[in-house]
Design a protein around this nucleic acid. Structure first.
Lengths: 209, 209, 209, 209
DNA sequence: GATGAATGAGTATTCATTCAT
DNA sequence: TATGAATGAATACTCATTCAT
């Protein structure tokens, strides 16, 4: 392992350390109330150091989204890779995957929406932005593929698969956000799970022929 | 018209004038980036005047939600009042109502979520807060009633009507937020309408037996 | 009584009404925390009206001092007018008078000090300022006269009577302020009285030969 | 000298730099008219920096009092430590000490009174507040001790030593405030000194048997 | 005279970001 | 690289004062 590589690895470790701290602080206080000072303290670093790894506060926040999107893509592609599964089974597996994604980082949805705000987008580096867009595109595309197959096989109602994927994602987001905003999640995790299951069940019944 | 009454009316006109300006500015910049100075300028008033009509920035923002909630309740109750309509027809009418609500104020969903944040809630006057809670409660209750009837008549799948109402609302919110965040709305209003229709169609198929 | 005179009297009544309200509010909140709005409400008038009777907040505050100074002068001159009393008796009477002045308006001392601050003086009308100065001068002069007599008659130690008057006034002010600042006055009025008596006793013993 | 220690020292230097500037500005304009901006400019720092060293405006102001109280206590205790001196000599030494304290910081008295206002107290950190209270308590206690001895030895009139200490302090405060408020101090420092001396002389004669 | 709605200048405080060490 | 002290722009909110009615 060359010196260059070791440095690269060390640098990545630091980035992760900061992101872990940032996630905790942002979860706790939200984007606006969380200060860079808070995050630095949580990461046991100085504020200045944060800027060696992230261009600014927005980009640090956005990088959290990147991570979850990477996880989402892996899970969704994995669902699609099950060659033996039929569309209905894949839809079921997709729903399970979404729940795992949610558990991986319950903030995911809020991150997503913050991310899309125009004010935020202005402050991101083009590189990070294109990475995020690419990942989003791929994930949604992969979801749409499932619907495509279902429609092609006459198992699902004949609607535009991309629109179906959008709707599926929107339903998921909506439930998570709605219950989060009602502050039910932390206290009643089961209630969220049940509601998500109901939502998915209704959705599943709705897309089938 | 007494002098008292005229003053009252004038005062209400001012409140509306400020709310209209606030809505424009908040829509444009979001809650945090919008300054009271911005809003005052948009309303062609001085900053101090805003505080004669609204306790603080949070309460001004929240009052925008109040207005939309009032409209929502009226529409939803009207759907329920149609004695001749069967649950399926009511569900259809409810979906139309939601779309009107959305058109009345596309910010509605974002308002709703901002409103629920604990930081926000701390700054609201108890009176305003209870008004908002009451309106939310009534609206969701009214929606649940539609599902209740459907379930009772064996037309809808037998699930908890309140959970079905939650899911319905979450689906609506999710679609609006998702498309808003993708900045598609202004440019492609039709796409939102189509996606909402698809979402509602899928939902409708899903809740029916 | 002419119309002119009646108007004058009515105007004076209003001034008094405002001053009474102002005294209550200033006592309660201090000069800086008290708002003109507070005072207007206490006086059951509108803020604008206050400005018909007083040039500004400072002048309203200063006018309270004027009133107490008028009362002080009357009491002190009355002491001096007792032709039969000897200096020692007059000194005793003076001390009683000071206590009455204090009871007439416990804020007196704080008023006095606020009044003298240069920022305040800048905002007073020349007329009001000269009235205040004149009253102060007369009162202190009258007090000095008592000491003058005492010194002349060889009853008091031979010091400059004006300096003795200053010291007397300073002692009185100091005790009142000190105990006020220790928040003892409202709770333990007796303690103030006792301390004042002790202070006056010591002072009395100190000035006598 | 370790790096830690050097930093500590540097930090203390900054605090002093700010306090010196604050003292100048507060002396000039009084607490309310002085702005943090003014003080920052006087200290040749930015406003934000002030807040790195002092929690808020009130605490900056209060810290000025702390310094003078520390000096006061040292001087007063030093007087008490003179084992050979009799009460009369101690009283004389105490008066000299008070004058030095006054010269150390002529604002002392005004600080003291501002400090006691309830609004002020609310904004102070508990730690600073208890330091101040402790210092006040000790100083007054030390003064009272002098009187105690004098009374015990039959040299002073038999009055409560704590009340005598209060009166002594009040007399001192009163003279300083009175002359300050008459704006005589800067122009005629001698006059203050003479008046203080007279006041102390009268007091001294008054407490002796 | 009296009103009270409107004004808008004034300010303490915060915090993302920088840069000398 | 890492630090963390310093920056200074940004902003919600207050309130003495005015003036059209």
């Amino acid at each position: 392992m060359g010196i260059q590589e070791r440095k690269e690895r060390e640098k990545e470790r630091r980035r992760q350390q900061i992101m872990v701290a940032a996630k905790r602080v942002f979860s706790d206080k939200g984007f606006n109330k969380a200060t860079m000072e808070d995050i630095a303290q949580e990461a046991e670093l100085s504020p200045g150091t944060l800027y060696l790894y992230f261009k600014n506060k927005e980009e640090l926040y956005a990088s959290l989204s990147l991570r979850i999107l990477q996880y989402l893509l892996i899970r969704v592609e994995h669902v699609n890779d099950e060659k033996d599964a039929n569309p209905e089974e894949k839809l079921k597996a997709l729903m399970d995957a979404m729940y795992d994604v949610y558990e991986f980082d319950p903030l995911i949805i809020i991150n997503m929406f913050h991310l899309q705000s125009s004010e935020t987008l202005k402050n991101l580096s083009p590189q990070l932005m294109s990475e995020i867009k690419e990942l989003s595109r791929k994930s949604l595309g992969s979801i749409a593929e499932i619907f495509q197959t279902g429609v092609d096989q006459g198992l699902f109602v004949d609607r535009h698969p991309v629109a179906m994927a959008d709707t599926f994602w929107a339903l998921f987001s909506g439930v998570v956000l709605w219950l989060t905003s009602k502050r039910l999640i932390n206290q009643e995790k089961d209630y969220l799970k049940q509601t998500l299951e109901l939502a998915f069940e209704i959705f599943g019944r709705g897309v089938k022929k």
